[in-house]
Design a protein around this nucleic acid. Structure first.
Length: 597
RNA sequence: GCCGGGGUAGCUCAGAGGCAGAGCAACUGAUUCGUAAUCAGUAGGUCGCGGGUUCGACUCCCGCCCCCGGCUCCA
């Protein structure tokens, strides 16, 4: 694609007309205009709203009484292809804002008029291709013929200006790439993502199920619970070694507590409440208020700090029904929480050590963390000075650790700003997982104190942090990240012993018993099925190791080892298998190493 | 919560105002097998839930629940 000269997009407007001038974003933005043109051609009555480039493509919002159907999308795509084939030039035109308002009013485009009325620029730009003219800052490709590879993906409702009080528009999503090859690759990724969907894998691998009777809360099956437990075990190991003290606090708590913490004022829409003997109770949506009871249980000295109080707590949040999505968005959340009470002079070191823990966990699972600083929301508690101080503290900690970060303005918790940690999975999708929150508010609300070296009572600072974030979301993400093929230490079934025929059952049983004695999660598949069938089943279940035993193996005291990767290693002594497995599991290796030279 | 699409056997899905279907899985039997699906038979259902229309409803109408794709919100 040709370079876009700066003068072609010199006009600076603010608001929703932002457009990233990189070639790919420009192409997508242009494709959205072509789509709007096609829609106007096929459905003359619709009104156009906005149509930006987004991460993997573009969308355009239209005001239309009836939603678009899949058949509509096919027709629109065909009309777009015609527009592309016609190779219409994109022509830029500038005019006074008032003239633009008159122009769009005359054309019956109320959304464009509304946008223009909200702008403070004296002049605006329009782009035309063929018979279609749109308010737009640009830039665009030179002509529609430069659009080579695009596809419409879906349609759905979307609120005008993203506000649920506004009318709902019809949005069409599409994707566009610089080459057909890139488009194909993207479509492959979408397809791959569908195959890895944790909801599908969760069922197939028997990790968990959902049921109508408990929307937003999984039933963990034995295999899924094994993954859960192994993550917990690792978590406890690391936290024990890092000076954390584990606690457990009540789930059903009197409203009084939530009033004191501020949750009743700032979070009550998300809380499940119930009446018990004329008192109002709430299921805890967060652990923090109750954590302060652990702190206050004893008189704290400056020597006791930092006090690191951890809790794997089961939380309930009343998420709106339409937002629930598998393990990614649940109503019952198991959070690996901890609250660090420290002196102001300890904050930087504590945050640094939490960042270190997060990097340690994520490295083990081959996840690349990305850091985002979320600042004061509109509905905040406390004073601006407190917030400025806390935001500064988090910024300093990120800087001191040499971590680049993005800003998420107004996205902090109501009691304090946070560093949110996101990861990108193998398919390039982004998940928010861990969080570190700096809080001067709750210590104030709960009148927390410690006795300082000078004998005076001082107020501690509270750091809230979670590494997995929620076990639910984390396991969902991890399942998709590894496509169900968990590293051996996490795999629900680590090895499956397959006798060639029932004649070799005794030896198979002996091998299986030795594996179990070595605390390997091993299964014996001696069903009356052909070997090929049982191999296929183990393969589909992503069992890391299949151990096939027959006459030869029995005589030699070996197994024929088959990795789930398909790799075969014949005649591996059972002793060797046990030793290698023990090493692989205890080191929590991510690769399959057993029997390899 | 909002817009749209769905809910039929454990799973994937077909069907449709007049006896509820298939494949896989399960169970039984035969086969005793060397690296990704052996053969035969059997069993399996409140067609999401509740109401209505009808001689008759899985099918049509109304309400609700749940799921999916988005929006909004979020770990």
């Amino acid at each position: 694609m040709a370079e876009v000269s700066p003068e072609e997009r010199h006009l600076r407007l603010i608001g929703e007309l932002d457009c990233d001038p990189t070639p790919l974003a420009t192409l997508r933005h242009s494709t959205s205009h072509v789509m709007a043109q096609a829609v106007k051609r096929l459905f003359p009555g619709v009104k156009v709203a906005i149509g930006p480039a987004i991460d993997d493509g573009f969308y355009y919002d239209f005001a239309k009484a009836e939603p678009f159907t899949p058949e509509d999308l096919v027709k629109i795509e065909a009309a777009m292809a015609e527009i592309v084939a016609a190779n219409l030039p994109f022509e830029r035109q500038e005019l006074d804002r008032a003239a633009a308002i008159a122009f769009f009013r005359e054309r019956g485009e109320p959304y464009k008029v509304e946008i223009l009325e909200g702008l403070d620029a004296p002049r605006v730009s329009l782009y035309r291709q063929g018979d279609f003219i749109d308010l737009c800052r640009g830039p665009h490709v030179r002509s529609t013929g430069e659009i080579k590879a695009f596809k419409l993906l879906s349609s759905s409702g979307a609120y005008w200006r993203g506000d649920e009080r506004n009318p709902m528009l019809q949005r069409i999503y599409g994707t566009a790439w610089l080459s057909q090859e890139d488009l194909d690759k993207h479509l492959w990724r979408l397809d791959e993502a569908k195959k890895r969907d944790h909801r599908k894998l969760g069922r197939e691998l028997e990790l968990f199920v959902f049921h109508d009777v408990a929307p937003g809360a999984p039933f963990w099956l034995p295999r899924g619970m094994t993954v859960f437990r192994q993550l917990e075990a690792y978590w406890r190991e690391v936290h024990d070694a890092n000076g954390y003290l584990e606690t457990s606090t009540p789930i059903l708590v009197n409203k009084k507590l939530w009033e004191q913490s501020g949750h009743w004022d700032h979070y009550s829409d998300n809380m499940f409440k119930l009446e018990v003997e004329e008192q109002t109770f709430g299921l805890k949506p967060m652990n923090c208020p109750e954590s302060t009871f652990v702190y206050r249980h004893a008189l704290r000295s400056y020597r006791d700090l930092p006090l690191r109080v951890a809790e794997i707590g089961r939380l309930h949040r009343n998420e709106r029904s339409g937002t629930l999505t598998g393990l990614f968005r649940v109503r019952q959340v198991t959070m690996d929480d901890a609250h660090i009470y420290c002196r102001p002079d300890q904050v930087q070191d504590e945050i640094t050590s939490v960042l270190g823990l997060i990097r340690q966990f994520y490295k083990l699972l081959n996840l690349e963390p990305r850091f985002k600083l979320a600042t004061r929301p509109d509905d905040y508690m406390g004073t601006i000075e407190m917030w400025d101080g806390a935001e500064h503290g988090l910024h300093e900690a990120l800087k001191a650790n040499g971590l680049a970060y993005e800003l998420k303005p107004k996205d902090g918790a109501f009691y304090g700003p946070k560093i949110d940690i996101h990861v990108e999975d193998v398919l390039g999708r982004d998940w928010q997982i861990a969080t570190i929150q700096l809080d001067y508010n709750l210590p104030e609300r709960f009148q927390l104190e410690y006795v300082d070296a000078d004998g005076h009572a001082k107020r501690p600072v509270m750091i809230h942090r979670a590494i997995f974030g929620s076990f639910e979301r984390f396991i969902g993400m991890l399942t998709e990240h590894v496509a169900g093929a968990f590293p051996t230490w996490l795999a629900p079934v680590q090895a499956r012993v397959l006798p060639v025929s029932q004649k070799h059952e005794d030896y198979a049983r002996a091998v299986h018993a030795r594996l179990r004695a070595a605390r390997v999660r091993a299964e014996l598949d001696d069903r009356n099925e052909k070997l090929g069938y049982r191999i296929r089943e183990a393969q589909v279940q992503k069992v890391p190791y299949m151990m096939i035993v027959g006459q030869q193996e029995r005589e030699a005291g070996t197994v024929s080892l088959r990795h789930r990767s398909g790799e075969e290693l014949k005649g591996v002594p059972v002793d060797r298998v046990l030793a290698d497995l023990a090493r692989e599991i205890s080191s929590r290796a991510s690769d399959l190493t057993v029997g390899r030279p």
